[in-house]
Nucleic acid binder design. Structure first.
Lengths: 141, 141
DNA sequence: CGACAATAATAGACTTGACTATAATAAACC
DNA sequence: GGTTTATTATAGTCAAGTCTATTATTGTCG
């Protein structure tokens, strides 16, 4: 059910975002980058919890679309530093209200108490899922 | 956050299921089919809320892996009817406890009241997301 | 019957995600 | 100073999901 609800929300955002020409994962990436400009790919991959190679290919596409700029790291010749283009900033400004709208629709008719409870429980589940399976197995016995 | 939690749960299941040799979406498919044997592809796609072509290719792979059998529909020569193989039934039996384990870990330390509240709120959100975006726009004004 | 619309499955091309592996570079260490 | 190890980015290959067609059918209607 949780997965189902998450999927419906993803889909709702995707439908709205399609006209902008940016996919939802791309928006998540751009949005994260807007708070950490200059970060290198590995760091951003950690932030987004995706594999470096997944991020690498998304960056390829975003660079092709003139939304992200790769600049050489000043001292580490292996690394790239990532920067938003002005075009990307415009896109983000258009996308944020869409995300807000999805949240509004989703949370319609839910009281403040329920909302708080929901957040609290979600956070508990998140903590429960944080331990790696090996540790989980170990802690079970 | 909801998406994050859903992703963590997906991942937890994937890690456990990998050794069985079936992916999570495949398990979902097999599990659904076990309750609707004989259904045709379009019907199953509706059930799982994926595009027919997505299901079609998953069925291709599952048929290659001897987990699903396609039989001709008795009267409609366009359609296939889907059946589990015995091998698939064994797999399902192995996977169900894994899913249960993930749920147990996820819900650890959550009271019955919280669990009930969580389900209720999730269901509300689900209902909120059920309306199509066009209708949502219309109902907004 | 015959044209035409609807339905079932599938093809092509794309994004996103994974796993495994590899080249280049940096850091650590003897 | 040179060898080994770790890190950074990337390639190959696959699954799963999307959108937009296309091919067989089936059903409908004149």
């Amino acid at each position: 059910m949780l997965g189902d609800v998450a999927r419906r929300m993803r889909r709702a955002f995707d439908e709205r975002a399609r006209s902008i020409g940016v996919t939802r994962p791309q928006w998540v990436l751009l949005s994260a980058l807007s708070h950490h400009e200059g970060i290198h790919q590995g760091g951003l991959a950690d932030l987004l919890e995706v594999e470096p190679i997944t991020l690498c290919r998304m960056i390829d596409r975003l660079q092709d679309a003139d939304l992200i700029e790769r600049r050489r790291h000043p001292t580490d010749r292996r690394a790239w530093c990532l920067y938003l283009t002005d075009k990307a900033r415009l896109q983000i400004d258009k996308l944020r209200p869409l995300a807000d709208e999805v949240m509004e629709v989703a949370m319609g008719g839910i009281s403040a108490e329920d909302y708080a409870a929901f957040e609290r429980i979600l956070e508990t589940i998140r903590q429960n899922m944080m331990q790696r399976p090996a540790e989980a197995a170990a802690s079970n016995g």
